[in-house]
C-alpha cells in the first residue's frame, strides 16, 4: 500500500497513474466508496491543450458504489469538454454489474483489458 496516497488510513483504494502515448492510464486497486473515492477524483488529470484521453483500469477493483459511478461520470464529462474521451477497462464481477446496472456502459465504452482500450 506504499503508493496509496489518498486513502491512507482507509486502506481501501490505491491509484497508480501511467502515461502511454499521451493517454493517462489510471490503475485502480481496492474498493471505491464514499470514503475512498477522493483518490480517484484527484488522480484525474487537468485538461491540457491537446484533448484529454483517459483509460481507467478497473481490473483491481473489488467493490464500487454510486460514489465511484459519480466520479467516473464527472471524469467523462471533463474529457468531453476537452474534446477527449474516457474508456473503462477490465471491469468484472460486481463492478461490471454496477456499471451495467446504472447504465454507465451506454455512456462510456468498456473494454476487457487496458490494451484493448488503448487500441480501440
Amino acid at each position: 500500500m506504499a503508493d496509496n496516497k489518498e486513502a491512507a488510513g482507509h486502506g481501501q483504494l490505491s491509484v497508480v497513474r501511467d502515461d502511454v502515448d499521451g493517454i493517462a492510464v489510471l490503475g485502480l486497486r481496492g474498493e471505491v466508496d464514499y470514503q475512498s473515492v477522493g483518490a480517484l477524483s484527484e488522480a484525474v488529470p487537468e485538461p491540457s491543450g491537446d484533448g484529454l484521453r483517459i483509460v481507467v483500469d478497473l481490473s483491481g477493483v473489488t467493490f464500487m458504489d454510486s460514489s465511484g459511478v459519480n466520479a467516473l461520470i464527472a471524469a467523462h464529462q471533463t474529457t468531453q469538454a476537452a474534446q477527449g474521451w474516457l474508456r473503462l477497462a477490465g471491469a468484472r464481477g460486481a463492478v461490471l454489474r454496477t456499471v451495467q446496472l446504472v447504465g454507465l456502459d451506454s455512456l462510456v465504452s468498456c473494454h476487457p483489458t487496458v490494451e484493448d482500450a488503448l487500441a480501440a
Partner: peptide, 12 residues
Amino acid sequence: GHGILLGTGART
C-alpha cells in the same frame, strides 16, 4: 427498458 442513470448530462 434499461438506460443510464439521471444527472449525467448524456442525451441518449
